[in-house]
Design a binder for these strands. Structure first.
Lengths: 142, 142
DNA sequence: ATAACAACTTCGTGTAACCCGAGGTCAATA
DNA sequence: TATTGACCTCGGGTTACACGAAGTTGTTAT
């Protein structure tokens, strides 16, 4: 299966600009058609999936490129070790981000409930001035 | 409790540069001491907590500032509604990010296991060329 | 056949959210 | 008195794109 830049962008919920940036950086390989237009295929899909996930770990583009360059080299033991170390590090990063996302989502749930209470006229205790200055955790001022 | 910029940076695992950026943007209020040095207090801690969580939702600095500006205004019904809408939107964003983080962490776990299998000499089926080109999902080339 | 249009191209500047270093101020200490 | 350390401001640099101008190419509409 072949994809134009537009189709490929839609497939990964991104933009043409970003794809051009990636191909120019040498991150994402692509072919060209008669009119010099970028052509992406199934292997591009695999690379792009890798990019997306590594980016979600917070990996900078340069490091993703380093990793991909290793992937394209011959498979020595050293090479595999280097790749393993990168993935190990990024996996840990992924789990840290997961935990962070959990805490953030919980906080936002609470904050939302807070507003719903206020808007419904059920003013929660921690917003009642009578409880201020007595060590009550007000969970932020806003 | 009062904090110097260095102490405050340590408290939130960030840098002096970032804190200066936030105060300059009007995002994070702070006082000044005799030597014109920034002084943060307990209310700064609350604001900063808000910044951290909203940033984790992916909220751009400008929008955080808009929200905070609303928080500092008188509490009309309109004002509360506006704030509620922002929190509602960002909470949804937080949950999307949480799901994304879950999927990414799972992918990285799998990828890591993959490498451990290879390095341990247990070559998994999807890396065996005999299984290629037969519709086997190889989960990426690397 | 020619004109218009869509979709791509390169190239160059703009933006967000910082990072970093130079050069200066100020209080305390050797 | 001089040096040290922690801060200040200011201006340029960086990353990861976003955007627009100007040009090319291939496909339809008159």
């Amino acid at each position: 299966m072949n994809y134009s830049i537009k189709q490929f962008a839609k497939l990964f919920h991104t933009t043409k600009h970003t794809l051009r940036y990636y191909t120019d950086m040498g991150l994402l390989p692509c072919g060209r058609d008669g009119g010099n237009h970028r052509v992406f295929d199934d292997s591009s899909v695999n690379w792009m999936r890798g990019i997306v996930y590594l980016k979600n770990c917070g990996t900078p583009v340069k490091e993703i490129k380093q990793y991909f360059d290793l992937c394209r080299l011959e498979e020595s033991d050293e090479n595999l070790q280097a790749r393993y170390q990168i993935i190990l590090k990024q996996r840990e990063q992924a789990h840290r981000k997961l935990e962070e996302a959990r805490v953030t989502a919980a906080y936002m749930d609470e904050k939302l409930k807070h507003y719903e209470d206020i808007l419904a006229g059920r003013i929660p205790d921690d917003m009642n001035p009578a409880n201020w200055e007595q060590g009550v955790d007000r969970k932020g001022l806003f």
